[in-house]
Design a protein around this nucleic acid. Sequence first.
DNA 1: GTGCTGTAATCAAATTTTTCCATAATAGAT
DNA 2: ATCTATTATGGAAAAATTTGATTACAGCAC
Lengths: 309, 309
Amino acid sequence: MEKFDYSTLSFKSLKTLKLIYEQGSLTAAAIELGQNQPTVSYTLEQMREALQDPLFVRSGRGVAPTSRCHQIMPEIEKLIRGMSELLQPENFEPVSARLDITLSCNQYELQVIVPNLVQRISRLAPHIRMTFIQSHVSGHQQLQRGQCDFLLSPVIHDYEALYQRALFQDRYVCLISTVHPLARQQIGRDDYIAAKHLEIHYEGGWKPFYLSAPELQGTNLNIALRLPSVSNFLSTIAGTELVITLPERLAHQIGGAMQIKEPPFSSRFELCLYWNKMTHHSKAHQWFREQIIEVCRELDSPEQGLRGK
Amino acid sequence: MEKFDYSTLSFKSLKTLKLIYEQGSLTAAAIELGQNQPTVSYTLEQMREALQDPLFVRSGRGVAPTSRCHQIMPEIEKLIRGMSELLQPENFEPVSARLDITLSCNQYELQVIVPNLVQRISRLAPHIRMTFIQSHVSGHQQLQRGQCDFLLSPVIHDYEALYQRALFQDRYVCLISTVHPLARQQIGRDDYIAAKHLEIHYEGGWKPFYLSAPELQGTNLNIALRLPSVSNFLSTIAGTELVITLPERLAHQIGGAMQIKEPPFSSRFELCLYWNKMTHHSKAHQWFREQIIEVCRELDSPEQGLRGK
DNA sequence: GTGCTGTAATCAAATTTTTCCATAATAGAT
DNA sequence: ATCTATTATGGAAAAATTTGATTACAGCAC
């Protein structure tokens, strides 16, 4: 006598059993199922073997459930309901959804995108817990390893395993003190090269895009100061004659009273949202992606955001 | 795009999914299942179709679950557990079991068996609720229709659809007042026929067995009084000269001070327990049948019963 | 980059399971 | 006792699962 394994049983068997129970007849159950009677008989035979009980016995015109059958029928119905629910398309309600989402990005995105994003999410989906980690230079790795759900980055990650969506463009500008000699004139290439610069040097040795602008090739900038991040740099360099080259949106946010000037080169770049296969089909993540996109759209037309209030 | 029906899915699919999840690899899952890798791949493909999600994506050496997969895995585990429990052999613990059992019988059994049975069951299985109904003459019908779980009856029900078990034998005796003229002598056939009788007439026109004793054929008993039941008959007939013919065990129980005399015929009969296919395999009912048998055994040797206390 | 390695996906063939049709057995009902 | 409605059984047909061989793919080492 071989030991019975639940694996061989299917939900169809359970459904059949339930129908026999409800109809009190194999024939009726067969019609209901669109099968013919021997098929139902065969299925019942399997279940009898599995459960070691006749389950139904002939009685009048039809069959009557045994004591065991009565006993297990609630459990069977529970299993059937469970399976139907499993097949329900994932439903996601922002207001009630509880889940964790991890985003990887760097200083720029933390400064430019994240504040608005956090505002928006905690308003629309208060039970989503967000975690932000630093990308440094390995954002794509983090994403591929599942260490984060999303990556916000201007770097082009052209792995085909990754999905991406452009969010907005930005470009580098120069930020100088209003009392700087260059403050009243256009900055030419020679002015720029001659000036003293503040350079933000990132972990992992990443170099800002503007350094690869064709106009600057073959030159050596006069770096007077290096800082590891833009945070709090204003007070650090107040009154100095340093030139800081940084993305325009960042300049607007943290430039304070300093003057924004056109640099002697053009270096546009695009900020992208990246995600991977693991979250691609998830309704929750789909919604979250839309929120990021919407937040970025509002950056370009801020008044739009208030309408939704 | 056809709508998906849970019926096509089996528990094996769920088990496979769970194993892939645990192992992070189709190959490993296949080995665990004793199948080969394309089989697992095929099963996964089915589930992907059903759940409309990749469930697992290639990642490093193996696969990583998607967000949806993480989400549904607890539910899948619940379903697997539910199914395993369903296949567990029915377990029955008298002390904790809650169930209803209906027994059909008549006055005789209510008087002779039921008191001890109720005592025993409420001691061993306090949560079994017993219901007693009257058999009248249709006990076998009640049983076949599932109106009761057990029938206690001396009548031979030789339907092959019914199971039966002999419990004990009994025979008819005469009960007379101690001051009756016959009280000091053996009752002969002529004495019996000449005497005035109390007859219990049952519903449905059922006639007691002793009336079909060969010794009484062709005779007419002198019936002086008919009662519909033996209950309380003692006070009714106190001091009269009536002869009452009734089963010995009943006579002992309700005869009070009256005298038990050998009748001028022999009429043994057997009391049986009957049940049907519906309850035959049920552990609870099996146990209950044993209790009935035990109670009846103790009727013949009452001191045995006390030892168990 | 290029090849190497371990893994998942795909394909056609073999196998097993399920379904079907016809028919026998069975239990109530007339 | 016969009739009728129903379940069980047996063999053939259909469908599904499983297999082995192969291809495609992603990560890793060089």
